[in-house]
């Protein structure tokens, strides 16, 4: 089949790739761009392990032909921070043991990130709804919910402190948080 030249935008970088139209974003990320943080558990949209953000929304990279996301901003787990510069959400996730085998974790973290970016103060029900498309076999889900909840609470507390000191600082912090994210 004819290969297609695609100009993908992944984690803020231009990534030109030449691929068959039947190649999914999952394959392109893992096999062409070597971004193996995005996992796969079924390749049929039934587990959530391959969740990435497409223009900020969680989507399943196994169900997206790469050609369909040309022009969109694709965000993968690699963009959230490495082991030495983790996102505070990831720190809390690790601290609580919300990752056991860790295989479903990148997908969950991306679903959680999408929620936290759009909903500053999610309720427990909001959190459950946001991760209802991700399966985990290790944890029983509690620590995952707790990690997201703790992060949101801490962020709110931090922001309250910032507000009381200086509204400009809040903005700076938000930008910093975003940059880290």
């Amino acid at each position: 089949m004819k290969q297609m030249a695609l100009a993908l935008r992944v984690n803020g970088e231009e990534k030109p790739v030449l691929v068959s139209p039947s190649r999914t974003l999952l394959e392109v990320l893992r096999e062409d761009l070597n971004l193996t943080g995005t996992k796969h558990g079924c390749e049929l949209g039934e587990c959530g392990a391959c969740t990435v953000l497409v223009d900020g929304k969680p989507m399943l990279s196994c169900l997206l032909p790469a050609a369909q996301v040309e022009g969109a901003e694709i965000t993968t787990i690699e963009a959230l921070g490495g082991p030495s510069t983790p996102h505070p959400l990831q720190l809390e996730w690790a601290r609580l043991g919300a990752a056991q085998c860790g295989y479903c974790t990148p997908g969950f973290v991306m679903s959680a990130k999408a929620l936290l970016d759009s909903n500053p103060e999610p309720t427990r029900e909001d959190i459950k709804a946001a991760i209802a498309g991700n399966l985990c076999r290790c944890t029983g889900y509690h620590k995952i919910v707790e990690a997201i909840e703790n992060f949101a609470r801490q962020r709110k507390a931090d922001q309250a402190i910032d507000r009381s000191i200086d509204t400009t600082a809040t903005a700076v912090r938000a930008v910093a948080l975003e940059a880290r994210g």
Binding site: E31, H40, P83, L91, A94, A98
Partner: peptide, 21 residues
């Protein structure tokens, strides 16, 4: 204490079998 492989896992850096090439 946080598990020793915790940060690798939450950042997607753990290399699982299919991540190797």
């Amino acid at each position: 204490e946080t598990r020793v492989d915790g940060l690798e896992k939450v950042t997607g850096r753990t290399r699982f079998a299919d991540d190797l090439s």
